[in-house]
Write a protein that binds this DNA or RNA. Sequence first.
DNA 1: AAAGAGATGGTCT
DNA 2: GACCATCTCTTTT
Length: 167
Amino acid sequence: MLLNKLLVCNLGGEAVAGRIIEVEAYDQDDPASHTFRGRTERNAAMFGPPGHLYVYLSYGIHHCANVVVGGEGQGEAVLIRSVEVVEGLDAARRRRGNRELGDLTNGPGKLSQAFGLDLSHDGQDLCSSNGLIRLVDDGMLPPRSPQVGPRVGLTKAVDTPWRFSCR
DNA sequence: AAAGAGATGGTCT
DNA sequence: GACCATCTCTTTT
């Protein structure tokens, strides 16, 4: 379960951490998934070992971050759609053009920008203790039990109810 | 408050 | 050459 874990990044000398509050799942049988048509150069990380990062460029402008799940060769990942910054707010806001908190990391492209993530971080291990990008379970309980709903922002398989949030 | 359009570039056919 | 797992700004109600 990825919800309520912390994404911790130390990039460009600026540490930013955030609590994951919304995610969206993709697997190889999903027409909307990048892995639907098999392995390519771009989606290679999704077929790699779980616990690694998959970053792709969206609409030529934004970066989106996923956590690889499932087993190696499975082509499954979970897109991080929204987080709540708990550390490094100054750096996050500077990268986001000094935007208000409610507009800071409430979208996959926005949070990647706030955390300084880009294509160069594709495939990174999120579980190694000395990594610059990490996924941390701090044992905190979710403020709300997880909600399930249809996915958004897609053109295929829109109704597959694989969006989860605890907002 | 809601709806529409343009930006922009890597990846795949 | 077409397609997008998005965001922001502008226009319209």
